[in-house]
């Protein structure tokens, strides 16, 4: 009678690719890390309070100056831009933060490196938890706007195919931008954790998230037009608000198809950039022995 082997290499299902397996497990792990520090009720409050407070700051600022004229088209422009911008911080930082978290906090990056996984897929998976909590925050913010602030939202008038396509493209684009940052994070010390926030903060300013690009000084506007998030937010606004969103001159010269084309093109560009950055940074990090560095800040 033969004894079963201690280690069965066939435990891993062969039908699933390493990338999918890495993504799936990282998604589960990311969710555990994000949510298991407290009970579900406190976690729900935590997930709601921050985005609602951010939105409320803008609402109060707007209300103070306009004496509560929330029916003006600029208000839904600001409100929706701010609500969907939650995805930028959530997805981009969610993906890139995994590097610092694994290397410096849990000190497991070296083990992840020697495990049979695909690192970029693993990082993308780690970002899914933040995407889910971000989606919850976006939904709550939108619901508050529609219920209490008269943000014009009529389900029958929403261009759902355009909305879903734009949302999907946007999330992919943000994840690819997160991969670029994650690769760069391989090369930097813990105290540069602010890099994700810095990029998200700069994009908040440059992408016309909460004000039309015409308000920016002329020398800053070209940067705004070079950012895919500018086109993504415009598509989201157009799909939800229809003609109301077309009233702003920034991108009025483009139709929806052109905007989708630009967004797709820029996303592909970021995909290529992510692949190149990963190869370069991964090589350098191995070469310099940075994979298991603990900068201990």
């Amino acid at each position: 009678m033969s004894t079963p082997p201690i280690y069965q290499s066939t435990n891993l299902p062969k039908t699933r690719s390493a990338a999918w397996r890495s993504f799936r497990i990282a998604t589960w792990l990311g969710w555990q890390i994000e949510s298991n520090w407290t009970d579900p009720i406190l976690f729900a409050i935590y997930s709601m309070l921050k985005p609602l407070a951010s939105a409320a700051i803008l609402v109060v600022m707007y209300g103070v100056i306009t004496n509560g004229q929330f029916e003006n088209p600029i208000f839904p422009y600001i409100y929706l831009g701010n609500a969907f911008y939650i995805y930028v911080g959530a997805v981009m930082t969610g993906v890139s933060w995994a590097v610092i978290d694994d290397r410096e906090h849990y000190r497991t990056l070296k083990y992840i490196y020697v495990a049979p996984i695909r690192l970029p897929a693993y990082w993308l998976g780690r970002g899914v938890a933040r995407f889910l909590t971000g989606s919850f925050a976006v939904f709550i913010t939108l619901a508050a706007g529609v219920l209490f602030l008269h943000v014009p939202f009529h389900p029958a008038r929403v261009d759902w195919p355009l909305f879903l396509l734009s949302l999907m493209l946007g999330v992919v684009m943000l994840a690819l931008m997160g991969l670029v940052l994650a690769s760069i994070s391989l090369m930097i010390a813990h105290h540069f954790f602010l890099i994700g926030e810095a990029v998200a903060g700069a994009l908040y300013l440059l992408s016309g998230a909460i004000f039309p690009l015409e308000v920016l000084p002329p020398w800053l506007r070209p940067l705004g037009f070079a950012m895919p998030i500018t086109y993504w937010l415009e598509l989201i606004r157009r799909s939800l608000l229809g003609d109301l969103a077309r009233g702003f001159p920034t991108l009025s010269g483009f139709n929806n198809g052109q905007l989708l084309g630009i967004l797709t093109g820029l996303s592909v560009l970021f995909g290529l950039l992510a692949a190149v950055t990963y190869r370069l940074c991964d090589l350098q990090a191995r070469e310099k022995g940075l994979i298991d560095q603990t900068t201990n800040y």
Binding site: M61, I210, F211
Partner: peptide, 21 residues
Amino acid sequence: FDVFLSILAVSAYVFVYRAIG
């Protein structure tokens, strides 16, 4: 980062105020 991030936030809110007059 401390100065830059704060200036970014300040700038965003300043431009919102300017956008709504």
